[in-house]
Amino acid sequence: MAESMHRFPGYDVLAKRDTPSWNPQTRRVIEERLALPPQAHGFFTEAEWRTLNAVCARILPQPPDRADPVPIAALLDQQMQQNRGDGFRQADMPPLREAWRRGLAAIEAEARLRHGAAFHALAAAQQDALLHSIQQGEVRAAEWQGLPVAHFFKARLLHDIVDAYYAHPTAWNEIGFGGPASPRGYVRMGFDRRDPWEAVERKP
């Protein structure tokens, strides 16, 4: 889906930055997120970084004509540096950082085992097929040892990527979310009611 097919044409939550919809602390937090360089990484190694970027591009493929893509991998690297987990993990799952390192290594090993090539070098369809089999827990590489494969895919890989993506203003624009709202919230609550500061949906 090209960005030009946007459901909410012309909508930009950032346009509300200087209205009562945004309080100073929200401005601070979002500005910091937007300032993150897409190539910034201090936790993942170069090899991991290449794999990670390729994985993110398949889990949430962004339109090529997008002006301000979500730097998913950089956001994940930041999460690793902060060691910001969920506050729990299943008994068979390694802690956050270890799970990601082992998971990326295993994805890479699986790609080499199946296709004799690095994951990031595969065609999109091959990458998708490989990710689907990981999702099903159908893997062969020895590197998966000690990782609950399907659970890792769902609770770690998907979960962290999706958390990073949908916490970004670009994603809010894409789905017509109102975005930050304080002190000003909303007035019109009923069906098909929209405040002037909300997104207009393109009707077919």
Partner: peptide, 27 residues
């Protein structure tokens, strides 16, 4: 802030281990 990620600071984020047949999501 009006931001899901930032506000995770409100949760108990120190690790807990979950198991059983239906492990609970904490956090």
């Amino acid at each position: 802030a009006s931001d899901e990620l930032e506000q995770s600071k409100l949760y108990w984020l120190d690790e807990r281990i979950t198991d059983g047949e239906d492990p609970i999501e904490m956090g």
